[in-house]
Each structure stands twice: as structure tokens, then as C-alpha cells.
């Protein structure tokens, strides 16, 4: 139980930062339309690799449900975070180019190269943001603006997430 306390702190921290800080930053109407940083997928990305998929899925559901309730998402957070939870192992496999079934998986994040780690976080955030903004607009009428929103928001989220990722992987999983 003790070893999971950092993960609980991580989940709480990213959820609270998202609810009380990132969703309340006023960047002006023209920028807010294009840039909406979301760092809460980290609560799923950095969960222990050795965890069974079902636990990852349930934790993701709990996190997304809280966000839906607090931010009035009406299910969109659940809808877009659960695919990330389900695909996490595959994304890890693709970015690290090796199986995560081996016995040395508990320290995987600390032993990943920086490039691999950034690719893993970046690709996952991109996938999440694509799903999120596509589901939010439900229209391809402004396709160019949709793509710009996805790319700019992903970049911004990655920049904000990176210090947390580095801190967490170097201190906690080391």
C-alpha cells in the first residue's frame, strides 16, 4: 500500500491542478479557443506499468468521473480517457519497442530514454486531445481550426506535463 502513495498524490495533484488552475486560466477568447491544456491524462499514463488493465481502467474511470462532475463534462472526460487507459500498454509497447510483459517492468519509466518517454507522453496526449476535441465539436465544419486546436493544446499540455513527468519518473519510480 505504501508504495502506491506517490501515485495517489500524483492523481490528486493533476486532477486538482486541472480543475482549479488550468480550467480557470483566462488567456482571452481568441487564444482559449485554440489552446486548452489538459494534463490529467498523466494520472493514467504514469500508473504502475505492472498493474492489470482492469485496475488502470477503473482508476481512469474514477478520475474522469470526478472531472465530469466538477467541470460539467457530461461524460466527455470518461468517453475520451478510457480509450487511453485501454491503449496504454500498446502505446508503451510501440514507443519503447519492446514488450511490457517482462519481469522488469516496475522500473520501466525510470529506465526509458528521455526521447522514448517524451514520445510516449506526447503521442498519448495527442491521441487524447484528438478524441476530446473531435467529440466536443462533433463536426468537421471547421476542420482546420480543429486540427490547430488539437496540435496547439497538445503542445501546451506536453510542455506543462513534462516537468511533472520528469520529477515523478526520477524521484518516485527510480
Amino acid at each position: 500500500m505504501y508504495k502506491y502513495i506517490p501515485y495517489i498524490w500524483l492523481v490528486l495533484a493533476v486532477v486538482l491542478v486541472q480543475i482549479f488552475l488550468l480550467d480557470n486560466i483566462d488567456l482571452g477568447a481568441s487564444i482559449s479557443v485554440l489552446i486548452r491544456p489538459m494534463i490529467f491524462p498523466l494520472a493514467v499514463l504514469l500508473l504502475p506499468v505492472e498493474w492489470k488493465s482492469v485496475w488502470v481502467l477503473l482508476v481512469s474511470y474514477a478520475v474522469a468521473l470526478v472531472l465530469d462532475m466538477m467541470l460539467g463534462g457530461s461524460g466527455i472526460y470518461v468517453l475520451t480517457l478510457l480509450p487511453i487507459a485501454l491503449l496504454r500498454r500498446s502505446l508503451l509497447f510501440i514507443t519503447t519497442r519492446r514488450s511490457v510483459e517482462s519481469s522488469d517492468q516496475s522500473q520501466l519509466f525510470s529506465r526509458m530514454r528521455l526521447g522514448q518517454l517524451m514520445l510516449y507522453v506526447g503521442v498519448t496526449l495527442l491521441l487524447h486531445h484528438t478524441l476530446f476535441f473531435a467529440m466536443e465539436t462533433l463536426s468537421m465544419a471547421n476542420f482546420g481550426r480543429l486540427v490547430a486546436t488539437i496540435l496547439l493544446s497538445t503542445l501546451c499540455s506536453l510542455l506543462l506535463s513534462w516537468p511533472i513527468v520528469r520529477l515523478f519518473t526520477s524521484k518516485v519510480t527510480a
Binding site: 488493465s53 482492469v54 481502467l57 474511470y61 474522469a64 465530469d68 457530461s74 461524460g75 466527455i76 470518461v78 468517453l79 478510457l82 480509450p83 487507459a85 485501454l86 467529440m135
Partner: peptide, 21 residues
């Protein structure tokens, strides 16, 4: 069962989202 659970939770979320507005 993980995939079935995923489908179930997604269906609930889609229904909730679809009926929100």
C-alpha cells in the same frame, strides 16, 4: 472482460454525453 467493461463504460458515457444537450 476488460474489453467488455470498457465497452460498457463507454456506452454509459456516450449515452450521458449524447443526452446532455
Amino acid at each position: 472482460y476488460v474489453v467488455l467493461l470498457f465497452i460498457l463504460l463507454e456506452c454509459i458515457a456516450i449515452w450521458q454525453y449524447a443526452t446532455s444537450t
